[in-house]
Design a protein around this nucleic acid. Sequence first.
DNA 1: TAGCGGTTGCTGACGTATCAACATCACACC
DNA 2: GGTGTGATGTTGATACGTCAGCAACCGCTA
Lengths: 159, 159
Amino acid sequence: MTEPRWLDEREARLWRTFLDMRRRLDSAIERQLAEAGLSSADYGLLVPLSEAPGDGIRARDLGRGVEWDRSRLSHQLRRMEQRGLISRRNCPTDARGTMITLTAAGRKAVESAAPGHVEIVRRHFVDQLSREEQEVLTTIATRVRDNIAETVPARDSCM
Amino acid sequence: MTEPRWLDEREARLWRTFLDMRRRLDSAIERQLAEAGLSSADYGLLVPLSEAPGDGIRARDLGRGVEWDRSRLSHQLRRMEQRGLISRRNCPTDARGTMITLTAAGRKAVESAAPGHVEIVRRHFVDQLSREEQEVLTTIATRVRDNIAETVPARDSCM
DNA sequence: TAGCGGTTGCTGACGTATCAACATCACACC
DNA sequence: GGTGTGATGTTGATACGTCAGCAACCGCTA
């Protein structure tokens, strides 16, 4: 085993400011969503649900869309059902499945939260970056993401 | 209230790939730390503790260093104490305080995890970026972080 | 020295994330 | 038709993060 290549000061600063930016972005976003009584997890499900057809969407497909594993999804949906944001019913074509539908309250919640959410994302992120910086960051994020995706197995996939 | 400025396709792609990069980075890092039996939270405390003087560090100062609130810190320290990673004792100069020290097991854990950790950060992040991209990202992250910091109050501060 | 405001740390409650285990069902194959 | 394999969703256990509230304590001052 060779000596690890520790980060030099410049690299450490990159990593630390990156982590810090993330933390503060999360904090600002969660703070805003909390005003609508939602968490990031709620919002992440409500958005695709609000774009689903009227008769809802299968939990399986919802989970694939947001790349959550089944357990996480099931727990979250149970809590959201208890709060009246969504409703579950059996899937008519596959007895294993569960159909998820937005309730009126759920639709109202996501529609009331969305404008403030995009406003935060703009003010604290997108609009803080020049057009060039946006391009660079998209390039970086794509490369980093794809590199990890081909090296590290996804969390929920089995092989 | 004016119509919200939704993200166009290019902006949405930036935001989504950014979120995706973060998720996969987290996943890779947690996966690696788990090999040493540590979580990100553990590691985040073990590192500053390993740099503390021999008689330990006050929980207050540890919390300020990592910018955690007192409750989170207390819960995490309790769990880590139960696992034998750290030990607590009364602060000799201030009866309100608690001194935190790394145990031998704690030191061993962080030292065994650190090389693999920095390796992951390099392979999946730092070394994926050109020198120029690193500069741009540091600039971006600094700006975004500072902008949020002056707009949004920090989580633990009371005013 | 008694009281007051601020600090420090802990706890319980609740929401969330992950893992392992389980029950049920669909489907292909015999 | 029966069987095995994989898909789907749920649950319980455990760990983590946030919030509200508590208790002990410090420094200061009237």
